[in-house]
């Protein structure tokens, strides 16, 4: 009944719901990557962290019965891979972007290797809060069913913004990211700071993965991530290394990703796969629009290799 009442209005509503749902992995990965990049390193291995995190979270949630334990385990694996990235990159002449690609392949390999037995069983999911329960319309309820992790992410963005701008640790991190020579002269441990930043970044990406397998889409399989971890890296460039802008950008990308399924839900199914490409095309357009060969971007950490 209500299906017909809403009609095409279901599309923007589904996009809103989708933006909130689908943006969570983007949000966590991009906040983590933002921190890592602020320290002067790029970690493309975030895609591997995301996939491995998704598998770990699902497996641990299934075995222990506690989804939150799964989230923590996912963060821990992300942290380990982040540690590996930082350790390998501290040596001279080692290229951080290439190491990221290697870790991406490695992380996905490990996830597929250990993930085989968990494709079938059902694990307990993360809880969500129904902010739309006042409404009788099921689409409104569905759109406003918000996962607790998203709320964490919502708090994390301003927190990270404050840490980076106003704390001693944030200043140290930004110094290391802008000029390792200056940081050296001040007596900061450049590699130490970068290692911590990459590990926290990996932790957050792992948590983002946990959202994928434990809430939306809510199961573990080998095609679970379609490059969200990599899009999130591009998203950080677009957000100019600002955690609050990462939040807005993540919502935008979540909305773009929800376009295909939203149109399908109202019976518009031709070109479904083309609409699925919307986030990639959007990223590309935004990257082209915001980059320029003549000037460096505002807010870019001076030591970052990905903008050179």
């Amino acid at each position: 009944m209500t299906e017909t009442v809403l009609g095409w209005w279901g599309v923007p509503l589904a996009i809103l719901g989708g933006a909130i749902r689908a943006s969570t992995p983007y949000l966590f990965v991009s906040l983590g990557e933002c921190l890592t990049e602020k320290s002067g390193r790029t970690n493309l291995g975030q895609e591997g962290n995301l996939v491995l995190g998704a598998m770990t979270a699902y497996a641990v949630s299934y075995l222990s019965g506690s989804p939150w334990l799964g989230v923590l385990a996912a963060g821990a694996t992300g942290m380990l891979l982040g540690l590996l990235h930082a350790w390998v990159c501290q040596f001279k002449k080692v290229n951080d972007i290439a190491v990221g690609i290697a870790l991406m392949l490695f992380g996905i390999g490990v996830a597929f290797f250990f993930g085989k037995p968990y494709i079938q069983p059902t694990a307990p999911h993360l809880p969500a809060i129904g902010f739309g329960n006042w409404s009788d319309i099921p689409q409104v309820r569905a759109a406003l069913e918000i996962n607790v992790l998203f709320l964490f992410g919502l708090l994390l963005a301003p927190l990270l913004s404050w840490v980076l701008s106003s704390t001693r640790w944030g200043l140290m991190l930004r110094t290391v990211g802008d000029s390792s020579d200056a940081a050296d002269a001040l007596g900061f441990s450049v590699n130490g700071v970068r290692m911590v930043a990459t590990m926290i970044g990996g932790f957050l990406a792992g948590v983002g993965g946990a959202f994928l397998s434990l809430y939306y889409p809510g199961s573990w399989n080998e095609g679970l991530s379609s490059g969200q971890g990599l899009i999130a890296v591009a998203l950080v460039v677009f957000a100019r290394w600002d955690p609050m802008r990462c939040l807005y950008a993540a919502l935008l990308f979540g909305g773009a990703g929800a376009l295909g399924p939203a149109l399908q839900s109202v019976g518009f199914s031709s070109g479904y796969y083309l609409f699925n490409a919307a986030p990639y095309v959007l990223t590309l357009i935004l990257m082209i629009a915001t980059c320029s060969p003549q000037r460096t971007l505002t807010g870019v950490p001076g030591e970052l290799s990905i903008t050179k």
Binding site: L44, I97, S226, G227, L230, I231, V233, A234, V237, G271, Y272, Y273, L274, N276, A277, Y280, V281, T283, L284, M287, I288, C291, S292, P293, Q294, I306, T307
Partner: peptide, 24 residues
């Protein structure tokens, strides 16, 4: 070269766009 867009990210996005086109 002409727009200053990082080639690693662009080429990666291009991979996903190509696969979406193939599926379509």
């Amino acid at each position: 070269h002409y727009r200053g867009v990082n080639e690693t990210i662009t080429s990666l996005l291009f991979n996903y766009i190509a696969i979406a086109l193939l599926n379509h």
